[in-house]
Structure formats: structure tokens, C-alpha cells
């Protein structure tokens, strides 16, 4: 078999569910990441967090024992910030306090954009109505991501997606989604290391956001069977994924990548 990674130059890696689950390291991930670094491939970490700032994520990763630098981490929050900066808009932010740190220095007076992250304390009528009126006046609608719900200790809880969908319905405006699976999110992380999509692979536990999104953006994708993975998830893809790209965990993904790299020598 010819190497599927003939010109591989970069690996994009999901965080939660791929390297760790909350405060537990997925076994073998720390060593596997160190091995991957020695290969000389460029590494970037791409995550759809909307609740936690980058510095919060970094301190958790480092306390778990991962060697990851701030400039290697791309979050959907920071992607939203750069979109806000490039559009030169003043956002009305649906964000909880711990995430606001990533928006420090952004002008928010007299808003002309609406940015929706996961902000349960703001998903109520008055804030929603304020956002709706801004949209009526022509504000941009930006969704950090559009997930339907997430799991908490008390059970399933509504994510930002339903509230974005509701605002889209009322305003007649489609939201711009900045996190995975938006192709721009992957390409921003790759342009940071000067690598083309076809020279990169994404490793993650979410079949649609990580793997489906990567394939749509022109990368390859490896699905790990940890985190939120459920048996048969790979069948949800509209694209075809070779079974060798579905592996037990991050360590197995690294083994696969390094082995394929070796075959080209």
C-alpha cells in the first residue's frame, strides 16, 4: 500500500475526548504526543470550547502533564475573536465570565454584531431579545459553534446551537459558524504553520466535527474511539473513511501516522 501520508507536514489534534476527558489523561497520550513531536511534524491543537479561555485550557493541560504551548492552541473562541477583529465589528457577547478573557480589549459598546457561545446565564428572553433587535438593525450573527446539547453531571443540557437556530429563525439571517466543522477554522490553524490542507491530518473523537469537518476542508481525518465516540459513529460520515483511519486511541493514531511516515523513506 502506498503511503497515505506521502507529503504529511502537520497534525491537528482535538483536545477534550482525544487527549483527556475532564481531568483524566487518556492513557498513553502524553508519551504519544512526545513521540509525535520528535517526528518534526508541525502540531496544532484545535478545540471547540466556548466556555474556557485559552489560558484556562493551557493550565489544565499542563497540570495533566502535557507539553503544549499557548501559540499551538486554536480555540473556536479565539477564532471568533479574530473574525470580530477582521470584520471590525463591536460584538454583543453571549459568553460566560471564564470565556470573556479571550475577548479582552475588544470594543463592545454600541454593538453591531452578535456572538453566541455557550452562555446558559444569558439564554433568557431579555438577552435574546436584545440580540434579535441588533440583528434586525443589520448586525452580523456569529456562532462559536452550533452543538445541540452537552452532557453535564445532572444530565443533558442545551448547547448554544438551539439558541443560534432560534435567532436565525426570528431574524431570517444565517449565522456564520466559526468553530469545527467550519473549513476556515482548520485552514486558519494550518496557515499558521504554512501547511496546505492536503499535507495535514486531523485526529479527534467527534466523527462529524473533527473527521467530517477535516475531510470537507481537504485534510485527512483519523477517528479515535475515546471521549464521545460511540460504536458505529464512522457510519454517520457522508464521506468514505478507510477503516485504517479509525483507531482505538490517540497513541494508536500516532503509531499509525509514524508508521505511514516511515514507509515513505
Amino acid at each position: 500500500m502506498a503511503s497515505c501520508f506521502r507529503s504529511l507536514k502537520a497534525v491537528l489534534i482535538d483536545l477534550s475526548g482525544t487527549l483527556h476527558v475532564e481531568n483524566d489523561v487518556i492513557p498513553g497520550s502524553i508519551e504519544a504526543l512526545n513521540r509525535l513531536r520528535k517526528s518534526g511534524l508541525a502540531l496544532r491543537f484545535v478545540t471547540n470550547t466556548t466556555k474556557e479561555s485559552r489560558s484556562f485550557l493551557l493550565s489544565r493541560l499542563s497540570s495533566l502533564g502535557f507539553d503544549i504551548k499557548a501559540e499551538e492552541v486554536f480555540t473556536s473562541l479565539l477564532a471568533a475573536r479574530s473574525l470580530v477583529e477582521s470584520l471590525k465589528v463591536r460584538p454583543y457577547l453571549f459568553l460566560e465570565d471564564e470565556a470573556l478573557e479571550d475577548f479582552q480589549g475588544i470594543e463592545t459598546d454600541n454593538p453591531n454584531a452578535v456572538v453566541v457561545g455557550l452562555a446558559p446565564s444569558m439564554f433568557e428572553y431579555n438577552h435574546m431579545n436584545r440580540a434579535f433587535r441588533l440583528l434586525q438593525d443589520g448586525a452580523h450573527l456569529i456562532a462559536i459553534h452550533k452543538s445541540k446539547y452537552y452532557r453535564t453531571k445532572e444530565g443533558l443540557s442545551l448547547g448554544p446551537g438551539p439558541f443560534v437556530e432560534g435567532l436565525e429563525f426570528a431574524s431570517g439571517q444565517k449565522a456564520r459558524i466559526v468553530g469545527k466543522p467550519a473549513p476556515d477554522f482548520f485552514s486558519t490553524a494550518l496557515s499558521d504553520v504554512g501547511v496546505k490542507p492536503e499535507e495535514a491530518v486531523m485526529v479527534g473523537d467527534d466523527v462529524l466535527l473533527d473527521v467530517g469537518g477535516a475531510l470537507d476542508a481537504g485534510l485527512q481525518g483519523i477517528l479515535v474511539k475515546t471521549g464521545k465516540y460511540r460504536e458505529g459513529d464512522e457510519g454517520k460520515l457522508k464521506q468514505v473513511l478507510n477503516t485504517s483511519f479509525v483507531v482505538s486511541d490517540f497513541a494508536a493514531a500516532v503509531d499509525f501516522i509514524l508508521k505511514e511516515l516511515g514507509t515513505q523513506k
Partner: peptide, 24 residues
């Protein structure tokens, strides 16, 4: 409904919240 007019401006109607629950 998507919205209706009150004295202080347009207001979100029930459709926004129903759509949210449908999507979820």
C-alpha cells in the same frame, strides 16, 4: 410567530424558542 411590535420595538415571539427546542 417570529416577532411582534410592542411600544418599545420589535419583540421575539414564541417561534424563536419553539425552533430552539425543535433543533435540540
Amino acid at each position: 410567530g417570529r416577532y411582534y411590535l410592542e411600544e418599545d420595538g420589535l419583540c421575539l415571539d414564541v417561534g424563536c424558542f419553539t425552533t430552539a427546542l425543535e433543533f435540540a
